[in-house]
Write a protein that binds this DNA or RNA. Structure first.
Lengths: 147, 147
DNA sequence: TATTGTTATACTCTATAACTATA
DNA sequence: TATAGTTATAGAGTATAACAATA
């Protein structure tokens, strides 16, 4: 069984994601954020979520994991949680002013990071890359909606 | 500041890597492995490393983190460590027969995972994807050799 | 003094299971 | 009973700082 002639695409993907992810971590940390916090903020800002379950799904983590992050975010004043009067089982999560500010700082950092990563790539190439990544993800996902 | 019209490539990359990484984790775990163990095994098999420092660099982790993994791998009989007689500061890491066997099982799983991910992609597209990912990584790396 | 590696400790992210509150 | 969320606990991976052994 000879080794494959080229590096497996999974290895290239994992390596790139590790490198890019660490650079992104550093950029977010410099603003006082992290990847899960960024994902939660962006979900709260861009998608209407009815409850924490939906928010957890949007971020791709378990409910208890989301609670863990929200606890920290509430402690640091990024979000508030209050009961939905219409269904007191539901906790409505809302961004505070501080949360809004962090969102904007992280968005700026994320845009800068993205531009840095795209350096030397044409718009066509970026679109190709996104398409290829989508198809890759689809191949390893059972649920076609989880993308 | 309007939101970007398309999903930032960093988000697509992170999402794909998370999805693909979890699927890969599951495939490796089914054989009794993990991503760091796989990276260490593949480094030991394919690259000559003079010492643990080089091995840690090849895997992309700190020396103490490598020690942590090697401790576990030695406990489970995957590797042995012995002093280099020529320089007794250096610990020579070697695969045991059990380590060799795990390497082959994980290699088989990794190849199957890669084929699954590549489903529907031509060889040309995979090569394009690898090239684009390389360029992306290069853009967020200070050290051009860290690729 | 410098290098190699280990130990001690701790942090982040994640998860499962058991629990509370509400419906 | 079912649903929404929390708490308790744990495990994996990673890191830094302090240390021991060797050169």
């Amino acid at each position: 069984m000879p080794p494959p002639p080229t590096t497996p695409i999974g290895v290239v993907l994992a390596r790139t994601a590790k490198t890019a992810g660490r650079a992104f971590d550093a950029a977010l940390a410099a603003e006082g954020g992290s990847q899960p916090i960024w994902q939660i903020l962006i979900s709260l800002k861009t998608k209407p979520v009815a409850n924490q379950r939906e928010l957890a799904d949007a971020v791709g983590i378990q409910g208890a994991t989301l609670t863990h992050h929200l606890n920290g975010m509430e402690t640091t004043g990024l979000v508030t949680r209050r009961r939905d009067p219409d269904n007191r089982r539901v906790h409505l999560v809302e961004l505070t002013e501080h949360g809004e500010q962090l969102f904007h700082r992280l968005a700026t950092a994320a845009i800068a990071h993205d531009q840095r990563m795209r350096t030397g790539l044409s718009a066509t190439e970026v679109a190709q890359l996104a398409d290829l990544l989508h198809r890759l993800a689809a191949n390893v996902t059972d649920d076609p909606s989880a993308r």
